[in-house]
Structure formats: structure tokens, C-alpha cells
Amino acid sequence: MAKPYLPKVVTANDLLRGDVIWLDAQGGWVRSLAEAAVFDTPQTAEAALKSAAAQVDKVVGAYLADIRLVGGEPEPVHFREEMRVRGAFANLDLTP
């Protein structure tokens, strides 16, 4: 049996700051996974990735990441994205 399609979000790094960003429903970039747009089909996900990756003067390394919806909120499936959500474990930035 084919595996069910896992919903996707688009994530990348900001060109200037290098930090982790997520594509939102308006085609802009946000810094919180909770505000990211969720794509339910391969077609919409691929199309979103394509247009995101085309923003060469804003982002680097855009890719699709699996998520699951928990109480309507996207949560990472893989611990790589968990790390991207959480930031480096050590030496957290305490500056405002």
C-alpha cells in the first residue's frame, strides 16, 4: 500500500542572517513554524517550493519538510526540523 502523503512546509535560510525561515500562506517568510503555510498535496507543495526557491535575493537552500498537524498546528516529523525549530541547544541567544 502506498504511504499516505505527509503534509509539507517550505523552509529555507534567510540570505542575510542565515537563520531559519518558513514560507507563509501569503508567499512571505516567517520565523515561526506555527505561522507557516501547510501543503497537503505533492502538486501544491512542489509549486510552492519552486516559487520560494526562485526568490534568490532573499533565501538560500529552500526545501520541503514533512510535518504532522497536532491540534491544527504544524509539528516537525523529523528531528532535523525539530532542531531547526528549536535553534542550537547550546549558547542560546539571550540578546533581545
Binding site: N13, L16, R17, G18, V56, R80
Partner: peptide, 28 residues
């Protein structure tokens, strides 16, 4: 030139790497 969009990431990446600049998980 990268910031102005004159260089794409594909063009810029080997140049930044030659100067020790990587892109990691959360930052450069």
C-alpha cells in the same frame, strides 16, 4: 553582488566557501 542579486546562490556558494563561509543549520 550576491546581496544585489547579481550573483545567484549557485554562483556565490563556491566563492563564499573559498573564504571559509559555510551555511549551517541555523546560520552562516
Amino acid at each position: 553582488r550576491r546581496l544585489s542579486g547579481a550573483l545567484t546562490e549557485d554562483e556565490f556558494k563556491p566563492l563564499r566557501l573559498q573564504n571559509g563561509l559555510y551555511l549551517q543549520l541555523h546560520a552562516y
